[in-house]
Design a binder for these strands. Structure first.
Length: 632
RNA sequence: GGUCCGCUAGCUCAGUUGGAUAGAGCAACUGCCUUCUAAGCAGUAGGUCUCAGGUUCGAAUCCUGAGCGGAUCACCA
């Protein structure tokens, strides 16, 4: 409608007002709540150009539009705002159009370019935690949004399966896991422990032991015993020890931290882990076997977690496969002068002209760093999918700088797709007690949390739910859908780029702005529709009043919301829209009879609206990765 | 210190081409189940949109500066 009005203003404006109309003057917005009208035209730009009072200009435009545009039945002028009132048939036509479109809001599949969405880049030494949940739900929802918006989507993850962290778990398991009577060490099979939990347990063991050893080293150093200490460490220690003199508070703590770091590298157990990494890179059979076995346990554990989360991937990338990929690209870039080499052999890129720093892209010993690997992986992906147009990286905002540099390097290497790549940067999840810290044991485990929210949903649903007709299995699914729905919505409703607070009590709440609130409304509408039975709707006899129009307006905004949420990589926009729609419907539902309405045309219109609101709620929830139960 | 991000009600958050009286939820208080699912609805109370300037018909929104909080600036990933 706005498009039509704009065209008329552009074509007739000169005749009506006597001057050429600049398209930028034409600014529409939905008419404010509580004011009569459907769409508002800003008249200030016109008034300014005409040198006339806004009210007078508004009156002039309004009169012409009313007489020449069929669907505008009236207009009203308030201050500098010109509010148009649309005809009722316009709204009933709109409702019918929505009703007839089963995939309302969803763009034609594959009508847009192919995008790859990367989310969940777990390390294989620890179980998943709350931070991963935000990452994964967010990435999955963005993938779904892109799909709904017409893109072909490849969901992927990079698994950080190599490096010192996994060697730590391996070493600790090898040293500390008790030998059982049959000669085996602890495994998921013989202990019943989930694979990722088992490996994580030994990672913690490693860290504990490391801390003990660090303490010993520090004690030795403080008493002047430097046996077993490398010459370079001794030198640095003396330097730092000198620097301590006269320092207090923060400055002192910073130096003490550095000394601690130094001591870490002088511990036997860390050196053993480093040796193990070297052996792994040398494909030492025993090490490699242990590595693949323990990673296998972790993958089995992750699979269970992912399944409960309801997410999946189309393609997996393993760092152990990709960590060397970037080296050729770096050597190639070096030859072309994009990079430069220092005397020690390390390769760098100078980004100071772009306002950034110099960045290492290859170590002096020729091994790959994080950046090398990411360069290689990105290029590999465009080889794997020749029609790919961009990659979305769902990674925490602590890596903003890394991705800025990565995209810049890819651009300098001459890849035109680099400018299409996007870092979906999300904020950290804080707890009421502050930041999650693994060292302090304040990390919220993903499996534990999911169990908790589903338990809470189970209790509440058994108490209040309409579940008498459901089988045992259906109930189980329902509890799962409500608990997980609440958790997902809780994490998705907040603007992704913002840091957010995770309040455990609120996360299991089922009232207010929550997932279950929306699910409940959807289920209630379905109950209503079941009672209504099959109905014949006489489209020409629909009766639409102001309350109905309000709901149709919100419904009609759905496609636009999908588009915006997809373009902005923000499931939060969709989540908030669904909440608005739910609130609007509930308010209507409480004050207007639907099945009990005696006016046939009105009853039909209300049923039609209810049905289509349920349809939109379900479509939207599924995009967010949330189930929409038929009854609850 | 350089760079980037954030700051809106007691708490958690919406507020995206600058637009009318800044909105929700939670917590507090008051009502509404003998009509379609009360996980709901209606209402009361709660605001110097961190601060100071600027741009203009109009600023929570754009610009500049300051304050507070966070991230980042590794031959870690």
């Amino acid at each position: 409608m706005e498009v039509a009005l704009k065209e008329i203003l552009l074509s007739k404006g000169k005749v009506w007002l006597g001057i050429d109309i600049d398209p930028s003057w034409i600014q529409f917005q939905p008419t404010r709540k509580g004011v009569r009208g459907d769409v508002t035209l800003m008249v200030f730009p016109f008034a300014k150009a005409l040198q006339l009072p806004p009210a007078q200009v508004a009156e002039l435009i309004g009169k012409h539009v009313k007489s020449e545009v069929s669907f505008v039945t009236d207009f009203e002028v308030i201050q500098g705002f010109l509010n148009f009132v649309f005809s009722e048939t316009l709204w009933s036509d709109q409702l019918i159009a929505i009703h007839q479109n089963d995939s309302f809001g969803i763009a034609d599949p594959d009508s847009k370019q192919m995008v790859m969405v990367e989310y969940a880049s777990p390390n294989t030494n620890k179980p998943l935690h709350l931070g991963h949940l935000r990452n994964i739900f967010l990435g999955y929802a963005v993938a779904q949004l892109k799909k709904a918006h017409g893109h072909q989507v490849i969901k992927t993850q990079v698994i950080n399966d190599r490096g010192i962290h996994i060697c730590k778990s391996m070493l600790a398991w090898h040293r500390f896991a008790p030998l059982q009577s049959n000669g085996e060490r602890e495994t998921p099979a013989n202990s019943g422990l989930k694979g990722d939990k088992l490996v994580g347990k030994y990672y913690v063991e490693f860290e504990k032991y490391l801390q003990l050893e660090v303490k010993e080293v520090l004690t030795r150093w403080n008493t002047g015993d430097f046996s077993n200490t490398s010459a370079s460490a001794l030198e640095k220690f003396q330097e730092l020890d000198q620097a301590l003199v006269g320092k207090e508070g923060k400055a002192e703590a910073a130096i003490l931290d550095k000394i601690k770091e130094l001591a870490k590298n002088e511990t036997e157990i860390l050196r053993a882990a480093q040796d193990m990494l070297v052996r792994w890179e040398g494909r030492d059979p025993e090490t490699y076997l242990m590595w693949s076995a323990m990673n296998g346990w972790v993958y089995e554990g992750f699979a269970v977690t992912y399944q409960r989360m309801g997410v999946d991937f189309d393609k997996l990338y393993y760092e152990s496969d990709t960590f060397l990929l970037g080296k050729d690209q770096v050597m190639d870039g070096l030859a072309r002068g994009v990079f430069y080499q220092k005397p020690d052999g390390s390769v760098w890129i100078d980004l100071t002209p772009d306002g950034l720093d110099e960045k290492l892209v290859l170590r002096s010993d020729g091994t790959a760093v994080y950046m090398t690997q990411d360069i290689g992986t990105a290029i590999e992906r465009f080889h794997d999918y020749p029609s790919l147009s961009s990659i979305v990286y769902t990674v925490g905002n602590e890596q903003d700088y890394h991705f800025k540099v990565l995209f810049l390097i890819l651009d300098k290497l001459g890849y035109s797709w680099a400018k299409n790549c996007f870092h979906l940067s999300y904020g950290m999840v804080d707890l009421p007690s502050g930041k999650m810290k693994s060292r302090e044991g304040t990390v919220v485990d993903a499996d534990d949390l999911m169990e908790e929210v589903v338990n809470a949903a189970t209790v509440m649903t058994q108490e209040r739910g309409q579940i008498a007709e459901l089988t045992e299995g259906e109930r189980h699914n329902l509890f799962e859908s409500i608990g997980m729905g609440g958790l997902k919505y809780y994490l998705l409703k907040v603007d992704p780029k913002k840091r957010m607070l995770f309040n455990p009590e609120e996360s299991i709440d089922l009232t207010g702005n929550t997932g279950p609130f929306i699910q409940y409304t959807h289920a209630r509408i379905n109950s209503l529709l079941r009672k209504a039975g099959p109905i014949q709707i006489d489209e020409s006899a629909l009766v639409i009043e102001s309350g109905e129009i309000e709901l149709i307006k919100v419904l009609a905004a759905f496609p636009q919301t999908i588009a915006e949420a997809a373009d902005n990589y923000s499931p939060a926009l969709l989540a908030n829209y669904l909440y608005e729609l739910t609130k609007a419907y509930n308010s209507f539902y409480q004050q207007s009879p639907i099945l009990n309405e005696t006016n046939e045309g009105l009853r039909a219109a209300r049923i039609l609206i209810s049905r289509n609101i349920a349809k939109v709620l379900k479509t939207g929830l599924i995009i967010l990765g949330i189930n929409a139960p038929e009854r609850m």
